[in-house]
């Protein structure tokens, strides 16, 4: 799967309260969550983000609570992929489980800047800066996680397993 999009930049330790504040957690509707996505980190973000955009962030993206509403809000806002130096553990699981592509690449996280355009190849884990042509390699997913991604998320994966008995 190839994703091409424009970059939004965020820093280190972006927590789940910044991604979607608790005051919005009375719903799990993706479109409604998307209206408040990242608003405490950048109030203009929900109004400006476009479907297909890509987030590039520093270390420990998604730290804090276990709320799946965080990746749901990002997915609802049309974010096609998140590239970070590193992800917090529960956010990483949640993103995979709901089918939001995420890639860990410290090099890309350092080099890429706001509004740059990149092309991401999820199978190969490559991130290409379309202006300079520079290519960054992200760590590949372990095979068991690829199974979950291939099945289209954890629920489909479990459904398949349940059917097999």
């Amino acid at each position: 799967m190839i994703i091409k999009g424009k970059i939004w930049r965020f820093g280190d330790d972006i927590d789940t309260d910044a991604i979607i504040p608790a005051r919005c957690l009375h719903t799990s509707d993706m479109a409604e969550l998307a209206r408040h996505v990242m608003e405490d980190a950048d109030p203009s973000f929900p109004g400006k983000v476009k479907a297909g955009d890509i987030i590039v962030a520093g270390k420990n993206f998604g730290c804090g609570s276990s709320r799946e509403h965080a990746p749901l809000a990002l997915k609802g806002a049309g974010i096609a992929c998140i590239i970070a130096d590193s992800f917090a553990r529960i956010f990483y699981r949640n993103a995979i489980n709901i089918g939001l592509p995420i890639l860990e690449s410290p090099q890309a996280a350092r080099a890429l800047e706001k509004k740059q355009e990149v092309e991401v190849n999820l199978q190969e884990g490559t991130i290409k800066d379309l202006k300079s042509g520079r290519v960054f390699q992200a760590a590949p997913f372990p095979p068991s996680m690829q199974d979950i991604i291939k099945a289209g998320g954890l629920v489909n994966y479990v459904r398949k397993r349940v059917k097999q008995g």
Binding site: S66, R67, I90, R93, I98, L154, V162
Partner: peptide
């Protein structure tokens, strides 16, 4: 801590993947 989809899988299977 896990996410909600993880919890759904555990409620169905009683097991979960861990690293």
């Amino acid at each position: 801590g896990i996410g909600s989809t993880d919890l759904a899988a555990v409620m169905a299977l009683g097991e979960l993947w861990f690293k």
